[in-house]
Design a protein around this nucleic acid. Structure first.
Lengths: 226, 226
DNA sequence: TCTCCGTTGTCAACGGGGTGTAAAGCCTCG
DNA sequence: CGAGGCTTTACACCCCGTTGACAACGGAGA
């Protein structure tokens, strides 16, 4: 479960947020002023920070700025009272990821929180290029080379290879590949996956019948060891 | 869909609850007395239990107590007649999570059910890796190591081990393993479970004949102590 | 403590199902 | 209408899950 840091000095608002996020299954860390908020942001390494702008001791803007100074890319949502819209630009400049103006509905806040968490988790592991064995891949250019010689790859083969690279080491079920590489709307048979894996093996393995990188895990799926 | 176990001896109330939860999309398991209720709580591993206090053979309190003894943390809602409020404290001590006093509206009960399921779903996160004794398991990668050396595991063995890890400390009936690890549609003999437990023991125990982690509970099932 | 019966452990063999692979069908795009 | 690529089909192979038999064990009652 994600860990969310809430920094809010207004007692009733703070309690409401705490209870709300606990209820939704989040782990909640709470701070009542800016200094404590900054400390907890560093010590507890939350997955997301909800930050009131008006805070005792240290403003939300400064807390956000200091968090960024530590190099952290944790998503930050700012809470601001109506009439402070002028500060929006300033806030985003300082590294906040989103803005919610009081009064707001809890569902609206939750939606933005989930959007940010999804965005943050999606960033991990998107490779631009990768090398394994005598094969090198440039995903940006869409080129694959083996011993320096270019290999022709179809679009689907490329996406499949990229997915394997981005999830190397994991056992990946055929259904998951269909979801992630083919897409939700399309629904080919799982045997189609086998077919494409076989084609990939012919292109990247020295001995496709005895693969070194793209392994079969009987009864579970495939696994890329690169 | 969540699986809910209803233990209720009053016929009309039982039928109403069964129909109501079925209609809401739940999978319903039903018991008419306390002893059967306890058995089904172990064998079928429901996601939530609704337990009348007054039951033939074994009271709801005792059923709840026995469920907790198996190590299960399944949410339990007690149904009690008006005037039994005195028992509320006792019930909560015994491990019930919530209370509903008859007569109650179905929507009220449903609201509490959903609240509990929501709360519980956060805690039941799938394990990604786990270590016990000199064995370490990485479910994502599908790897098991003993003293650092890789152990070959089949798909079924892996799923079985994962289920034991995710329910460590609980006594798990063979029927429940068949339900949860094998799947509802398949129906192998229960001896098949024993076979696989034996295979698991050979791989993870130093002395499979005198197991340290994967224990037999004579007449009831198995229990993983990790 | 001994006996009996139900429960559990163990083994080897059979069979089903998961997988590799080639080839035919299909669809899209030029 | 031709070509390339994606999907489906078909078939052979092999892993491993299932099964039945038997031995070992544990609990209950005499």
């Amino acid at each position: 479960m994600p860990k969310v840091l809430i920094v809010e000095d207004d007692e009733s608002m703070g309690t409401a947020l705490k209870d709300g996020f606990s209820y939704e299954g989040y782990e909640v860390v709470f701070a009542g002023d800016g200094v404590e908020g900054l400390r907890l942001a560093i010590e507890r390494a939350p997955d997301l920070v909800i930050l009131d702008v008006m805070l005792p001791k240290m403003s939300g803007f400064d807390v956000c700025k200091e968090i960024r100074k530590t190099g952290s890319a944790v998503p930050v949502i700012m809470l601001t009272a109506r009439g402070q819209e002028i500060d929006k630009v300033l806030g985003l400049k300082l590294g906040a990821d989103d803005y919610v103006t009081k009064p707001f509905g809890f569902m609206e806040l939750m939606a933005r929180v989930e959007a940010l968490l999804r965005r943050a988790s999606g960033q991990t592991g998107r490779a631009e290029s990768y090398t394994f064995g005598d094969v090198s891949v440039d995903f940006k250019r869409g080129e694959v080379r083996r011993k320096g010689k270019p290999i022709e790859m179809s679009a689907r083969e490329m996406r499949l290879l990229q997915y394997f690279v981005e999830h190397r080491g994991e056992v990946i079920a055929r259904d998951r590949l269909l979801d992630e590489v083919w897409g939700y709307d399309e629904a080919p048979l799982t045997r189609t996956v086998d077919m494409h894996v076989a084609k990939l093996r012919k292109k990247i393995e020295s001995r496709p019948a005895d693969p070194q990188f793209l392994l079969t895990v009987h009864g579970m799926g495939y696994k890329f060891n690169g």
